[in-house]
Simulated scan of single mutants.
Amino acid sequence: MKKVLFICFALVIGQLSAQDMGAMAADAASTLSSDAFIDQIAGDQLKSMAKKFNLTDAQAEQASAFVTESLKSPKVQKALGKFSPEQLLSPDGLQTIQNTLLGNKKFMKKMKGFLNPDQFGMMSKAASML
């Protein structure tokens, strides 16, 4: 009888743990797609890109819309869904996000529209090193 009770207890605990893990995964996924989180990541990306590719304030303003739009795309959301919000906010995570953006052909095409040839060349070179 004790063995049966122990097995039942273990199954109940296992089920509760699985429910907790499912809830945590759902919370992480909803965080990644929230506007506030995307805006935070977009801001971090713009700062990094402005410094790395010598963007002017006007160029950074134009890039802002493209970065945010790209981060909300299903393709990028799927790629970033493999990471927790904490991982994405780390320096390595920010580089991963930037690599994902630079690897996105639509994003690069839009950026080419307003960057000067030297800036776009630096961005293309960075993208080719991925």
Rank of each mutant, 00 (worst) to 15 (best):
M1D: 11
M1A: 15
M1L: 11
V4T: 12
I7F: 12
F9D: 05
A10C: 11
L11Q: 04
L11Y: 07
V12C: 11
V12K: 04
I13W: 08
G14T: 08
G14C: 09
Q15N: 11
L16Q: 09
L16S: 06
S17T: 06
A18F: 13
D20I: 14
D20S: 06
D20L: 14
M21I: 15
A23S: 14
A23V: 14
A25N: 09
A26N: 07
A26D: 12
D27S: 11
A28K: 11
A29K: 14
S30M: 14
T31G: 03
T31E: 07
L32W: 02
S33P: 04
S34H: 12
D35L: 11
D35A: 15
A36Y: 06
Q40E: 13
I41F: 02
A42V: 05
G43K: 06
D44E: 13
L46Q: 10
K47Q: 10
M49I: 10
F53W: 15
D57V: 06
D57Q: 10
A58E: 15
A58T: 13
Q59E: 15
Q59K: 03
Q59I: 09
E61W: 02
A65T: 11
A65P: 01
F66N: 09
F66S: 10
T68V: 13
L71E: 02
K72I: 06
S73W: 10
Q77R: 13
Q77C: 00
Q77Y: 06
K78L: 10
A79P: 00
A79N: 08
K82N: 05
K82W: 00
F83S: 10
S84P: 01
S84Q: 03
P85M: 03
P85K: 00
P85V: 04
E86G: 04
E86P: 00
Q87V: 03
Q87H: 06
L88S: 02
L88R: 05
S90W: 03
P91V: 06
L94W: 00
T96G: 04
T96N: 08
T96R: 10
I97E: 04
I97V: 15
I97M: 07
N99Q: 12
N99F: 02
L101M: 04
L101A: 00
L102G: 07
G103M: 06
G103C: 04
N104P: 01
K105C: 01
F107S: 00
M108T: 08
M108K: 05
G113W: 01
F114L: 09
L115D: 04
L115V: 01
P117N: 12
F120H: 06
F120E: 11
F120D: 05
M122D: 12
M123S: 06
M123Y: 06
A126E: 15
A127G: 07
S128F: 10
M129H: 05
